[in-house]
């Protein structure tokens, strides 16, 4: 509360986004984000029978960049801040994290396609490179992830 001064009026409202309907007061339904994750935000591997953790070395800068992308907490600020209501920062964060790592690279193209398709289906808007999302993101997820997602998506579409 140190940001606020004596006598101030603080306005508090829920995320305003078509894809996040209000449930009550400040509580919104962010289930759309879970649905996007269910469409592709994973590596298709079952429990057990996987290689030793050090079997595939990963360059430290790559691991660090994947970690930065993985910091996304799925809060929804990006879609709420965007004037188009786009979820690109959220989707690109997960796509990036997994595309950067060898374990996720195998499905990177399919993942990008599936998650973007789901995002569109759920009513999120289009990205017009405003950058409001990254400005609001509490975990400082970078716009560079969106660029990477676009590349993955284009290359996937190109291969089709």
């Amino acid at each position: 509360m140190r940001k606020f001064k004596d006598g101030e009026t603080i306005t508090v409202e829920p995320w305003r986004s078509r894809a996040f309907p209000v449930i009550k007061d400040l509580m919104v339904d962010r289930g759309a984000y879970d649905k996007i994750m269910q469409a592709g935000g994973f590596v298709s591997v079952n429990t057990g029978g996987v290689p030793d953790a050090n079997a595939i070395p990963i360059p430290k800068p790559v691991a660090d960049e994947a970690m930065d992308a993985a910091s996304c907490i799925g809060c929804g600020a990006c879609a709420a801040a965007c004037k188009n209501g786009s979820a690109m920062l959220f989707v690109s964060a997960k796509v990036s994290q997994l595309a950067l790592l060898p374990q996720g690279k195998i499905e990177a193209a399919a993942r990008a396609k599936a998650m973007v398709a789901k995002m569109d289906e759920l009513g999120f808007g289009n990205c017009t490179n405003t950058g409001a999302c990254a400005a609001e993101c509490p975990k400082s997820v970078s716009l560079a992830n969106i660029a990477r997602l676009n590349r993955e998506f284009l290359s996937a579409k190109f291969k089709d």
Binding site: V43, V50, A53, P57, P59, K60, A63, L101, Q103
Partner: peptide, 22 residues
Amino acid sequence: NNIIDQCVAQGVPFAREYGGLL
């Protein structure tokens, strides 16, 4: 040990040293 293997396989971004190992 199986747990670490599983997490790496899922794409959990554990910290790595400069040589690329965990």
